[in-house]
């Protein structure tokens, strides 16, 4: 990388946009650059990206940003309206809502990150295996996928949460269990289209094993449509987690999970509207951010735009 950073701005751009890349690495970078340029042209996607980056920054710097301890209860100072001292007011135990919101960001991020790193690989593996091998493996795996698809998501999550016991980790696991089947379907469809391609045959002739073919050649082909789908699903995951929190089965108190905050605040809805509204808006903004980002990514990675 050192040599590249030494190249001047225009030089780097030239290197990236060169019609005659000198190495595979350069070609890859070039493609990524073009994608990025196209992505930045999409204002909405950039807004989405900045929301997501903002969420990450808030998570990292939460201790610096939060004016109060998010867990410090003060019954004498409960349900205070927004004001100079508490920008978003206080909740039913007298805790500062802004601080809880800031600390709550990490749980939202955690939910998204963990679901993605558990559900996406499972879906990818099941889908590519089914598509690649076909036959009874395909039939079995797809039947299982169908069974999971036919369950209502929130109810399946609910069942797993009660089976595994409450707590955020289990809620995440439960959401992951409900999230993988669509990925498996996408991966299978992609696999089937490339399975018989020449480059796979070529690799096979070179003696690449089945496992090598799947991980080295087929999985990368599925990535772009999967990334798009996963990003678009992130908002849904946040909403399911919030739904579990609303039903009192998500995060453990006093964890400031946003869904649970809305749930706790709903008894003050008429008079002290901010207690439920502020975290509700936070959920909305972050989900919107992920949706905008996913939408933008799709324009770049999956121009056909189908789902």
């Amino acid at each position: 990388m050192t040599t590249q950073t030494q190249v001047s701005q225009t030089g780097l751009k030239q290197w990236l946009t060169s019609d005659t890349p000198k190495s595979r690495w350069q070609a890859k970078c070039g493609r990524a650059w073009l994608g990025w340029v196209k992505f930045t042209e999409n204002k909405l996607a950039m807004i989405g990206l900045s929301i997501v980056i903002g969420l990450i920054l808030v998570t990292i710097f939460a201790p610096l940003l939060a004016p109060y301890d998010p867990l410090a209860a003060d019954l004498a100072n409960r349900i205070q309206p927004p004001g100079a001292e508490h920008w978003f007011g206080t909740d039913q135990l007298g805790r500062d809502i802004l601080s809880r919101l800031i600390y709550g960001a990490q749980y939202t991020l955690l939910i998204v990150a963990l679901v993605v790193i558990t559900a996406a690989p499972v879906g990818l593996l099941v889908g590519t295996a089914a598509g690649f091998f076909g036959g009874w493996i395909d039939a079995t795996l797809m039947r299982i996928t169908d069974i999971f698809l036919a369950f209502p998501k929130l109810i399946l999550a609910l069942a797993f949460v009660s089976a595994l016991g409450p707590g955020l980790e289990n809620a995440i696991l439960a959401i992951a269990i409900t999230a993988w089947p669509p990925y498996a379907r996408i991966a299978r469809a992609e696999t089937i289209t490339v399975r018989k391609s020449d480059f796979i045959e070529a690799a096979r002739l070179q003696g690449t094993s089945n496992l090598g073919l799947i991980t080295g050649h087929i999985m990368p082909m599925c990535m772009s449509s999967l990334v798009v789908r996963v990003t678009l699903d992130m908002a849904g995951m946040i909403l399911i987690a919030a739904g579990l929190g609303f039903l009192g089965l998500g995060a453990q108190p006093p964890m400031p999970e946003w869904g649970a905050m809305v749930s706790e605040g709903r008894q003050f809805l008429l008079e002290q509207w901010w207690v439920a509204t502020v975290p509700g808006i936070a959920i909305f903004i972050v989900s919107l951010g992920f949706n905008l980002l996913g939408d933008g990514l799709r324009d770049v990675l999956d121009p056909r735009g189908g789902d």
Binding site: L71, A72, A73, L75, Q92, L93, S162, G165, P166, G167, L247, G248, L249, Q252, P253, P254, E264, Q267
Partner: peptide, 28 residues
């Protein structure tokens, strides 16, 4: 996980922590 019990539990959790007792609430 009803409103009243949950709020009670959280208040108890807060006072116990002042005496050094770490109370983990398991909602269900």
């Amino acid at each position: 996980n009803t409103t009243a019990i949950m709020a009670m539990a959280q208040s108890i959790q807060a006072t116990w922590s002042q005496a050094g007792i770490n109370l983990e609430i398991i909602p269900g």
